[in-house]
Design a binder for these strands. Structure first.
Lengths: 180, 180
DNA sequence: CAGATATGTCAGTTATGTTGACATAAATTG
DNA sequence: CAATTTATGTCAACATAACTGACATATCTG
């Protein structure tokens, strides 16, 4: 296979189109985000593996911890998954004592979700290495630059209403019953 | 569910107190990364769906486009998946004319991967909305602040060699091949 | 009471990953 | 040259986490 059939011009063309220079596409940040997120998620993954859990469990434990008393519907809204998807994971977390349910105080159809002590500890254990990684990545940046990172990430998020808990404007409610 | 906005600061405060994090864990950035990445990936997802492809195809097309002449081994290294996982996706992309293989010019065991014209167009179509989203998120930031974002993302990545094509110190060897 | 809502559950499917075993061709090394 | 290693492919079985669709139940609301 004579491999030198391509001219230098062709090669240059190909490289250029591969780099997307003609369109000014920011491949650098696209890839940086890919690698950063993959490594960011790898820390908790290692912990979850030892407990037979996966990322789905992580997300549920995380958000229930962040917003105790969350309804199932609100959690589905945040995660943007179907209830069937949530059901399996949630059941496992409840059965193994990380989360417990309480019927809604006003609307008794609701199952408000609370972390148990065990659940809080797990959420914290998962968040710790992620926070450490973030702190490490922020060292060397000035306060204004750190704020810029936050601003950037906020700017990456769809503003059209779905998913972000703090973005809904729905105040968090009082925290009923204590837990395990 | 009213979806208007309370400020994020308010929500963050509420959530923080709800958790009692005396550990100073940066929940804000943890969640920001989660939502930012989810929305970031949702743009290409919509395009891929119309072609019956998924994220796995996206990653393969992207990296082959970025580094034409990539070997299968290098791609596996970058993606950090098994060859069996790659095989299925790669076969589909080759069969449908997005990528083609050329035996390595020096080492003929290798199958060097090149995007076809169709493949390049797909990679570009997928990168475009992501780049637009990034550009939008960067507007309003000064040059130094934009550099800080890059620095931050770089700092989030594991430095221990695996995965990042440019990060290993191994120079990319360009091996232009025939395509289309 | 009639309907809407919140949640649960059963059943089947898809996308993407995994491990393990084995095959083949080509390069490298003794 | 023979033996081994390397790069790749492939078959088979399996796991996870998502999906759709359908239906059940309890509860709230008009």
């Amino acid at each position: 296979m004579s491999r030198d059939s391509a001219t230098k011009a062709e090669a240059a063309d190909r490289l250029e189109s591969a780099l997307g220079d003609g369109e000014g596409i920011n491949f650098e940040l696209i890839e940086l985000l890919f690698f950063a997120y993959r490594d960011f998620i790898s820390d908790p993954d290692a912990i979850l593996e030892t407990k037979g859990f996966g990322r789905a469990h992580h997300r549920v434990v995380h958000f229930v911890n962040r917003e105790p008393g969350l309804t199932v519907a609100a959690l589905l809204d945040t995660l943007m998954i179907t209830k069937q998807s949530l059901a399996r994971v949630l059941k496992q977390l409840i059965d193994s004592g990380y989360i417990h349910q309480v019927a809604g105080p006003e609307d008794r159809r609701q199952r408000r979700l609370y972390p148990t002590r065990k659940g809080r500890e797990l959420a914290l254990a998962l968040a710790r290495p992620q926070s450490r990684r973030i702190a490490r990545a922020l060292t060397g940046l000035g306060p204004g630059e750190q704020a810029a990172v936050t601003e950037f990430l906020n700017g990456m998020i769809n503003r059209d209403g779905g998913g972000v808990p703090g973005g809904s404007g729905v105040p968090l409610e009082e925290r009923p019953g204590d837990n395990t």
